[in-house]
């Protein structure tokens, strides 16, 4: 469009501003995760993933925290998915293991994936997983059942007023990957 020359610089700047805003909308996605990390809080209450090798066990034998396990089957058709044990009493600073039991009852092979969530969310970053089956697409044959393992350590720095941590896994099927695997 033939804008008078005296307007061009301003229009250019405004278009740049607009493009910047559009990019900012997308930048909010990574920014959101970054901010959650910086503030050690936020909506992505997944807990933290740590390398097993970096864990030095220094158990706080005087303190006991209850870990509560929850399994949810979300939108995944016929599944059995539940923790093997409902609760576990742990000492902060010590490495523990827990398992979830999953069985595919859908009648066909499926790819599914578990998403973790921790409550209370404000202490999610004190819950450190060294091994987790979350965010890994899991292939299940028809009627296959499997024990899914998680190893974790609760940080000794966990605020003194926390007496219970809930670890929840939601089990989702991944239709696109299921189709790709057929």
């Amino acid at each position: 469009m033939a804008a008078p020359r005296r307007h061009r610089a301003l229009i250019g700047r405004l278009l740049l501003f607009t493009a910047g805003s559009f990019a900012f909308g997308f930048a909010l996605v990574p920014l959101y995760s970054v901010l959650c990390k910086v503030w050690e809080t936020g909506n992505r209450w997944y807990g933290t993933q740590t390398a097993q090798a970096s864990v030095i066990e220094q158990p706080d034998a005087a303190r006991v925290v209850t870990i509560e396990f929850i399994g949810t089957v979300a939108h995944a058709g016929e599944w059995e998915f539940a923790p093997t044990a409902n609760t576990l009493k742990v000492h902060p600073g010590k490495l523990y293991e827990a398992t979830f039991h999953a069985k595919n009852l859908t009648g066909h092979a499926v790819v599914a994936q578990a998403v973790p969530s921790i409550a209370p969310q404000s202490i999610a970053h004190y819950f450190k997983k060294t091994q987790c089956f979350c965010f890994e697409p899991q292939k299940f044959a028809t009627d296959e059942s499997r024990e899914l393992l998680i190893r974790f350590i609760v940080d000794r720095e966990l605020p003194a007023d926390v007496d219970r941590i809930t670890l929840s896994y939601s089990f989702f099927d991944l239709p696109s990957q299921t189709a790709a695997n057929r």
Binding site: T18, F22, G25
Partner: peptide, 14 residues
């Protein structure tokens, strides 16, 4: 408008 309409456009594009 130019600060936030593009953000909406981004959100609905996602």
């Amino acid at each position: 408008l130019i600060a936030v309409m593009p953000v909406l456009a981004g959100a609905v594009t996602m």
